[in-house]
Simulated scan of single mutants.
Amino acid sequence: MLVMLSIFLSIFLSFSSQLHLSSGEHVTYKAQFLERLPLPATGPESIAFDAAGGGPYTGISDGRILKYVNGSVGFVEFAITSSNRSEEFCVGNGSVALDFTCGRPFGLGFHYQTGDLYIADAYHGLMVVGPNGGVATQLANAADGVPFGFTNALDVDTETGMVYLVDYSSQFSVNEFSVSLQARDMTGRLMKYDPESKELTVLLGGLGGAAGMAISKDGSFILITETVTKRIRKFWLQGPKATTSEILKEFTVRPANIKRNEEGEFWVAFLVADETDSCPSQQQSPGLRISGDGMILEAISLDTQSGISEVAVYNGKMYIGSPFLHFVDVYAWASESHRRE
């Protein structure tokens, strides 16, 4: 996994603490650091909580999905995505050649009614594991006859039970991430999986590095982050614009995951910019809170110099995921209205 990490690190530079918005106005909130939750390996790419508030759950680079248990226990193993996985080969082994054997869970999302955890694994595609964890079951690794290249993120509509997921590319694997950027790959896809019919449907193609996605609180639309094209795309599920999409927001830096908070807003995480993206007149923030209409509500400043992959806000706390780190950092966060009080 050290090889994969070096691929990412060779592309990206460090962050500064603020974002200059197009209006020239600074909207920056300095998050208060609370605690650090150590992990046995790098790469807490995505973060999830179960219906009872248990967690955080996260997937790490040695192929395991871990659950955090309060107190002195810390993270414990919850699930794995490869039935051929071996502790001897996967734990502590930095060889990228073993990734398919070990699995690499990225996106995580619970269906609260059933307790099932759905997983986007970069090598094994869409998977699911029950409330008690264990070995996950593969649900799909291709759509319309085209294999997934790099299954990256998902979200579950807890009202309908539908699972929405994105494949970063159908041409490049996770180990070819830097190549996909150089090639400006546009083969990412948004898909829907119906757990009852077990049908997988492609909703939208031609995405430029589909890195993250999140469903709106009312289930009417999906926001998709595109790393290659540095933008957010909005896909309508309901209403007069249903089945159509539009570019919602464009950036000068590359967005990673996007996560909806309890208020129905969205947190966008940013990997650091590569040398071709650097702009001396524009500083960067590791995370932005935006509305469903694309309005930037605030930028956050964190005590980290590493790029982050996800900002997950749950019960007044902000959990930070990163492909580079051996821990999940936790910050205090209050809504804008509470901070004004």
Results as ranks from 00 to 15, higher is better:
1 M>R: 14
3 V>Y: 05
6 S>A: 09
8 F>P: 00
11 I>A: 03
23 S>A: 06
25 E>A: 13
33 F>C: 04
44 P>F: 04
48 A>T: 12
53 G>T: 09
55 G>H: 06
67 K>A: 12
69 V>H: 07
71 G>M: 08
73 V>K: 15
73 V>L: 12
82 S>Q: 05
83 S>W: 11
86 S>C: 01
96 V>S: 12
98 L>F: 10
102 C>G: 04
103 G>L: 11
103 G>C: 09
106 F>L: 07
112 Y>C: 03
115 G>Q: 03
116 D>L: 09
119 I>G: 00
120 A>H: 02
120 A>S: 12
130 G>Y: 14
136 A>V: 09
139 L>R: 02
146 V>K: 10
149 G>E: 02
153 A>Y: 09
157 D>I: 03
166 V>A: 05
168 Y>L: 07
183 A>R: 12
183 A>I: 02
189 R>T: 14
191 M>W: 00
194 D>Q: 06
196 E>L: 10
204 L>H: 07
206 G>N: 14
221 F>W: 11
229 T>F: 14
232 I>N: 00
235 F>W: 11
239 G>W: 15
245 S>G: 02
246 E>L: 01
247 I>E: 12
250 E>K: 14
253 V>F: 09
254 R>C: 05
256 A>Y: 02
256 A>P: 00
262 E>W: 08
263 E>W: 05
273 A>H: 13
273 A>P: 10
274 D>T: 03
275 E>W: 04
276 T>K: 14
278 S>Q: 14
302 L>F: 08
302 L>M: 07
303 D>F: 04
303 D>L: 06
304 T>L: 15
305 Q>S: 13
311 V>M: 07
314 Y>T: 05
315 N>H: 12
318 M>K: 04
320 I>T: 05
331 Y>K: 05
335 S>D: 15
339 R>I: 03
